[in-house]
């Protein structure tokens, strides 16, 4: 039993490490080129974005439609740290500091817009986040020191596939454990029925804020990684179209399923690239595929499903929790 638990804990990390080794090996023999590598890196970043959006939209039942806004704040925050503040220092620590700074920039913005809009029930968050994404874009275009509408160039290319896979795995690991903690139970309760959650004495505003801020932080870190992959960012990279992309990944993959976020983001990042041979027909075919998914799998590809290692069986939750403190009878910290 002990050994089985150990395998279960290490298994996901091993999968990620294997992907990395496989890609490195393929690059070594020349099957994998820089272009494929970059597509994979974007897939990793998109998984982080989609999974964090899933926490808000899929597990807490709120509706955020300006996730690219947080990504842009994270990208700019990280880029300012690595290419302006510590321009002459070339170190991994600068990179990590940048990512954390980007995450916090996004999280603070999330707090500011979450406080007024999450106190209310209903779709206000959608309206506010939609506006937020566009306001961030408009504001960033006006700030001259970070390039205004031209954007920032020459961001050091710190991020590589290894880093992205690491942060992606970390995100999924943290989200999975969060969702199966008392916090996660409160999120799901709010999603399932906010009025009942209120009536049960759950401080709904607090939990909605927690979920939203965590998601914003992850989106900020993902934005930071993005900036250090393409080394050139401009405000228009993070338009509403980008936010809509994440929503498509989320709902095509299946909201309320972390596996769904991984599948949705990976497939739909790779698919348009794979379809390039169709030239002008590319986007039409992409759209048709999405329509087919919605017709035949209206809950998303993995709606309601989780891969074994993305899931902690709820039935086992109170007998033998895998990670952290025992959740048995702990109750929410209200």
């Amino acid at each position: 039993m002990k050994g089985k638990k150990w395998i279960k804990a290490v298994y996901p990390a091993a999968v990620v490490a294997l992907i990395y080794l496989l890609v490195t090996a393929l690059r070594g023999v020349g099957i994998m080129n820089g272009y494929y590598n970059q597509v994979l890196m974007f897939a990793g970043i998109n998984i982080m974005m989609t999974a964090s959006l899933n926490l808000v939209n899929g597990f807490t039942g709120q509706f955020c439609i300006g996730h690219a806004g947080f990504m842009s704040l994270g990208a700019y925050g990280a880029a300012v740290v690595t290419s302006m503040l510590f321009k002459n220092t070339d170190s991994v620590f600068v990179f990590l500091l940048g990512l954390v700074a980007g995450g916090f920039a996004a999280m603070i913005a999330g707090m500011l817009i979450g406080l007024p809009s999450l106190k209310l029930k209903g779709d206000y968050l959608a309206i506010v986040t939609l506006a937020f994404g566009e306001i961030v874009r408009a504001l960033l275009r006006l700030v001259k020191p970070i390039g205004g509408a031209r954007g920032m160039i020459g961001i050091p290319g710190y991020a590589n596939l290894g880093w992205i896979l690491f942060f992606m795995a970390l995100t999924l690991f943290l989200l999975r454990n969060l969702i199966h903690s008392p916090f996660g139970r409160a999120f799901i309760a709010i999603r399932d029925n906010e009025v009942a959650a209120d009536a049960m004495g759950i401080n709904t505003t607090k939990y909605k804020m927690t979920s939203f801020c965590i998601a914003a932080f992850i989106a900020g870190v993902a934005g930071g990684l993005y900036a250090h992959v393409i080394s050139f960012i401009q405000p228009d990279n993070f338009s509403f179209t980008k936010s809509a992309d994440f929503l498509v990944y989320l709902y095509a993959g299946g909201s309320g399923s972390l596996t769904g976020s991984v599948v949705g983001a990976t497939l739909l990042t790779i698919l348009p690239e794979f379809l390039r041979f169709l030239a002008d027909w590319r986007l039409a075919v992409y759209a048709v595929i999405l329509v087919l998914v919605m017709l035949y799998r209206s809950e998303g590809l993995c709606g309601g499903l989780e891969l074994p290692f993305m899931r902690i069986r709820r039935q086992e939750l109170y007998e033998e929790p895998l990670f952290g403190k025992k959740t048995k009878g702990k109750g929410e910290q209200a």
Binding site: P182, R185, A186, I188, A189, R191, D192, N193, V195, A196, A197, A199, M200, G201, I202, G256, R314, Q315, L317, Y318, G329, G331, E332, A334
Partner: peptide, 17 residues
């Protein structure tokens, strides 16, 4: 108004939060 996504025990535990 139960929480359909949670198990019976979890629903009850929500009450005791």
């Amino acid at each position: 108004r139960v929480f359909p996504g949670l198990t019976v025990t979890e629903n009850l535990r929500m009450g005791a939060n």
